[in-house]
Nucleic acid binder design. Sequence first.
DNA 1: ACCTGAACACCGTTCAAGT
DNA 2: ACCTGAACACCGTTCAAGT
Lengths: 221, 221
Amino acid sequence: VNARRARRAHRRTPNRGHRIVEAAIAILDAEGEGALTFRALASHLATGSGAIYWHVTSKDDLLAASAEAVISAVLAAVDGSADPKKAIRAIALGVFDAIDAHPWVGTQLSREPWQTAVVQMFEGMGGKLQALGVPRRARFYAASTLVSYVLGLAGQYAAAARMLPQPDRAAFLGTVADRWVALAPEKYPFLHEMSAQLRDHDDRKQFLAGVDLILAGIASL
Amino acid sequence: VNARRARRAHRRTPNRGHRIVEAAIAILDAEGEGALTFRALASHLATGSGAIYWHVTSKDDLLAASAEAVISAVLAAVDGSADPKKAIRAIALGVFDAIDAHPWVGTQLSREPWQTAVVQMFEGMGGKLQALGVPRRARFYAASTLVSYVLGLAGQYAAAARMLPQPDRAAFLGTVADRWVALAPEKYPFLHEMSAQLRDHDDRKQFLAGVDLILAGIASL
DNA sequence: ACCTGAACACCGTTCAAGT
DNA sequence: ACCTGAACACCGTTCAAGT
């Protein structure tokens, strides 16, 4: 019932629904996930809080629509005609940068992986596998590995951003690295060895290195 | 202040804190993430809801402790002396099975990736890379790729379980596959091609295939 | 058709008061 | 030292009443 209501209204007044999503994105970007409230949204739009339910089924629906708006724009901007490896990298990097700019998108993508935004990623990356020479049987697994990896790192950046309103990410990484060093070296030799790299690694490079690692694995099929 | 309180109490009455985590796990397993409430937990333990705060700092703290309890047990059971590839597969599969049995753990791991449970995964899998002949410089990226992939798939299974109280996962996958087939074939050729495999794929096999794909990429370094 | 805003049924967290 | 449970400050969502 609610779904039909919302759909019908969405057809008649697409602007209103669009403006609601826009306002939600503005709040999420400016004040974080915790600040998105139907009351805050209503006062931002100068209406009653109940009015929003005419255009949107629920808060989950609103979050999904907001994330989809961000990701669709990113995927539409990727040049599909490029070399397949480059195209896969471009999609992955586009999603990464979008999540860097809007960390709440990361939370949302990993919360509802069957939503349109994720499905579009699956199609975008998976569609390039045939041109890479990946056998038919292996394409499903290869595409799902790529998507899972992107979603996994997306969630991690979102989590870091959630607890860091200010962008002092370097300081935070230093704190975590200190904690690694404080652990017993004989129980955690790898963490000790890696603490320096955690401290001054480059997020974007690390992300791309993972994509390339998976692509190298795919090439071996 | 709260942290010191909780820590001091934890030292004096470790049983109480342990029993709280046990009760939380029981509720999460039996009734899902939405059912874990301080009121529900209190009535389950036959105390006041405020009493729990003497042993636990916050709900986030309680969830982290619960996830850590599950994952630590899994990692402790893995045979570290095995062949390095086998050990990495065993850790990944152990975490996968734990999340399959306790879907809320998946949500929790991707929500707070610096927590002890994730750090232990990083050490466990990363510590095997040297024996695999991975160059020192590449180990950080390789380990983070493995962990991100596991967390990514963990989040997806948790999401699916969150909306499916009953285990009719097969029916759900069928619904999603139907939606893929209903999309425009010329815009989504890959989804059309993969819909049959989505319908009857094996979750565990898919997960392991991704791990092996990343291991193959690692081997090429 | 769409908006208003009070009301409902919850939350996590705190805290004076107890033992 | 630890527990009790009412109270506080919120939520998402609903719905009678308006225009």
